[in-house]
Write a protein that binds this DNA or RNA. Structure first.
Length: 264
DNA sequence: ATGGTCGTCTAACGA
């Protein structure tokens, strides 16, 4: 079973690239973030034509938005929290039917946190920290079993998840208040699947800024997108693929897809 | 040290 996660940065604009992802990977399940499409405008007919007749989505105008599309039957998981009480479409969950039984899939789009890493003066940073704390508390109470958590978590937790650990320690996404909370969240029953396959000190990036003239040449990347598996799925993990060349698809998202393969 | 670029009900906001 192949499960992909991708911050697509507008589903409607990049539908042709979603097709490209499908052609290349034949992923069974694709979790999308920043779909930027209100629910009444979700392009479900296109998604069905692409071979994904099972889907759940939660979107709004202009901002945020998440979707799970699947070749196999999904059951919606409805009783999930409204994080930070904002109704802002940053999480959706579904149960995937597999030969070995149901698997719960969580798809998250964690707040980016703004520019200044100070919760006192920057409400966006405070929101990010509060969001991660709420998620940590929820999974502490609801210990994940046969679960996969994916998404744009907007934190690069490890030294080799950024192009320069030293230079990014004061940059939002890699500051200690974020990485400590991120790691505490992961510890609520999850394993970092990407690092199980590609341990440190290998550099791993899933995002390259639009603001670099040549993303490949400067290679100032960050690992902001993640795939976590619950502890009980450790032996099921077969492979991880980071589709770095997708950064050159036109018009590119600033994030690239990550795909996990599991025997399920 | 600064500014650099995208996407969105084309305007300023969020990333």
């Amino acid at each position: 079973m192949k499960i992909a996660t991708w911050n697509i940065n507008s589903l409607r604009l990049r539908l042709p690239l979603l097709k490209e992802l499908i052609n290349e990977t034949q992923a069974d399940v694709i979790c999308l973030q920043e779909t930027k499409v209100p629910d009444p405008l979700f392009p479900f007919e296109d998604i069905i034509k692409l071979g994904y007749p099972h889907y759940y989505f939660k979107g709004m105008k202009s901002y945020n938005g998440v979707a799970i599309i699947s070749k196999h039957e999904l059951i919606h998981v409805a009783d999930t929290p409204d994080w930070c009480g904002r109704l802002d479409c940053r999480h959706i969950a579904a149960q995937l039917k597999t030969a070995s039984g149901p698997i719960t899939i969580h798809n998250f789009y964690v707040p980016a946190g703004g520019d200044i890493p100070d919760a006192e003066t920057n409400p966006k940073f405070a929101h990010k920290l509060a969001f991660i704390e709420e998620a940590t508390a929820w999974f502490e109470k609801n210990q994940p079993k046969r679960s996969i958590l994916v998404g744009d978590l907007n934190t690069a937790p490890l030294e080799h998840d950024v192009w320069s650990h030293k230079q990014l320690l004061k940059v939002v996404c890699h500051t200690p208040p974020e990485t400590e909370r991120h790691n505490q969240w992961e510890k609520q029953g999850f394993l970092d699947a990407m690092r199980l396959i590609y341990p440190e000190p290998q550099k791993l990036y899933t995002w390259w800024s639009y603001r670099n003239r040549d993303w490949k040449k400067s290679n100032r990347g960050r690992r902001l997108d993640h795939i976590w598996i619950s502890n009980d799925l450790k032996e099921n993990l077969q492979a991880i693929e980071i589709l770095a060349h997708a950064r050159d698809w036109a018009p590119p998202s600033d994030h690239v897809p990550v795909i996990a393969e599991l025997t399920l």
